[in-house]
Design a binder for these strands. Structure first.
Length: 437
RNA sequence: GCCCUUAUCGUCUAGCGGUUAGGACGUCGGAUUCUCAUUCCGAAAACCGGGGUUCGAUUCCCCGUAGGGGUGCCA
């Protein structure tokens, strides 16, 4: 069996689109599944808009998603260079071949390829047999001398010995052009696999750069877990077939087959992504969660290098089971690091019936009398207060939570008190008394 | 317009001639919990329409319809 060689060949437009990321992912999955080679090639033939930053966006997006390439920039360079802008000599050589076969001609300064006029059969691993006939000759070199996508794409696939062309369905119609070129070069035609497109979540058409959430960098900025996004992307057009959805990439690699990829377009569903992301977050080892969380809080300026690391880790460790995304982490823990937290009016209203001033004073006295301050003792205190005054523990819990955090939701109550510390809790409780006056 | 292509709950999907059409997200109930989040039960929710083929079509074929893509000296 031939060695599988696939490639991701993005054009550096300044963005890594979510659809492009999925194309890269499916190439990568297939390469890893088959033990083949994943090549990264940069199609920067449109000199006007290609920049170094635009190329970097592609590299960083792929790296963030964990899609490592075996061949290409920063990797093995067996058939390099991997930037089309640097492959001019190769294209000239291939053009000469077509010239000598009499398959090209010049017109208006551009170079045209002569089509055969015959229908081309495309054997697509996902879509089956597709037949299409080209109607007119097409340009392969512009009048400014630069080569056109269809030409360089095919030349490079031949030159880099690509065996499987896995790309978006938007290229399906173009494929008849490409097959004509492969034949003109008397080259072996690779297997094709055209993946359906990702449609925008709301409205018509495929997702475009302008749509919110269309760019990989958006998810990185919003602190999604790359493994979660990757898992979600796998599920757009492919399914394990056993009713599991959240599963390690190694499992997906084992199961991934091109023939199982769906033919229908998929609509992006951020809610489902959020769900998968939260599952990854919850099942993450706690030290890893704390580590990542620490860095995010640092990034956001919520803490500084001077902040007690152990305190931060204590906070994060009691929040892991509650927080649904790193995006909301900052807001979720901000009051731990500031005495100036806001008091939520709605939450305050609801506490009125608990006689909050009385409850707070009782707890203050109770805590001041404590010789040892830790979770179990705190629980004993609250339970005994509740019993003594014949009210539910909730009277104290809700009131105190609000007093020390300004809100009605947060981590498990006794853990919260314990992490915040005796001194801090007491001063917050005293301050909160004013809120109810 | 022409060409290519697709069609199962709102969304992602399983199904590959005979099923009570399964799962997940979301939604709505209920239970558990100190709040929230989990977790656990439960509910509503789909085979685009019309013709064939067949004993029997969600499944195969044809025609519509709707969606997507292409139709550049963009990629």
């Amino acid at each position: 069996m031939e060695d599988v060689r696939v490639r991701f060949a993005p054009s550096p437009t300044g963005f890594l689109h979510i659809g492009g990321a999925r194309t890269a992912l499916f190439n990568w999955l297939y390469a890893r599944h088959s033990g083949g080679t994943f090549v990264l090639r940069i199609e920067d033939t449109d000199a006007g808009r290609d920049t170094q930053e635009a190329v970097d966006v592609i590299f960083s997006g792929l790296r963030w998603l964990g899609l490592d390439w075996d061949e290409g920039p920063f990797a093995r360079e067996k058939f390099g260079p991997y930037f089309q802008s640097k492959r001019g000599e190769i294209y000239k050589k291939y053009l000469a071949k077509l010239r000598s076969s009499g398959l090209v001609y010049d017109k208006d300064g551009a170079i045209y390829f002569k089509i055969s006029g015959k229908p081309q059969v495309i054997n697509d691993l996902i879509r089956g047999t597709v037949t299409r006939k080209e109607e007119k000759d097409f340009v392969i070199f512009r009048s400014d001398g630069s080569p056109v996508f269809h030409f360089v794409n095919v030349v490079d696939d031949i030159d880099m010995q690509i065996t499987h062309v896995i790309r978006g369905e938007d290229h399906l119609s173009n494929t008849s052009k490409h097959v004509e070129l492969f034949k003109a070069f008397d080259a072996k035609i690779p297997h094709f696999a055209h993946i359906s497109l990702i449609l925008k979540e709301h409205g018509q058409g495929k997702m475009s750069k302008r749509d919110t959430g269309a760019l990989v960098e958006d998810y990185e900025k919003r602190k999604f877990l790359p493994a979660a996004l990757r898992n979600y992307l796998c599920l757009l057009g492919w399914a394990p077939g056993n009713d599991t959805e959240v599963l390690p990439i190694e499992e997906i690699i084992k199961m991934f087959e091109l023939k199982d990829v769906n033919k229908t377009n998929a609509r992006f569903d951020e809610k489902k992504l959020a769900h998968i992301n939260s599952e990854y977050l919850r099942s993450m080892p706690m030290d890893e969660f704390c580590d990542l969380g620490f860095r995010i809080l640092l990034d956001q300026g919520i803490i500084t290098q001077a902040t007690d690391r152990e305190y931060v880790f204590d906070i994060l460790s009691i929040c892991q089971e509650k927080v649904r995304s790193f995006e909301e982490l900052t807001n979720f823990v901000s009051y731990f690091f500031s005495e100036d937290y806001e008091f939520d009016d709605v939450a305050k209203e609801k506490l009125a019936k608990f006689d909050p001033v009385k409850r707070i004073n009782e707890v203050i006295n109770g805590i001041m009398d404590m010789t040892e301050y830790y979770q179990e003792k705190l629980e004993e205190l609250i339970v005994s207060l509740a019993n003594f005054h014949h009210v539910k523990t909730g009277y104290y819990i809700h009131t105190v939570r609000f007093a020390i955090s300004g809100r009605s939701v947060g981590p498990s109550f006794y853990r919260l008190l314990s992490v915040l510390g005796k001194k801090n809790v007491l001063s917050r409780l005293k301050k909160a008394l004013n809120v109810f006056r």
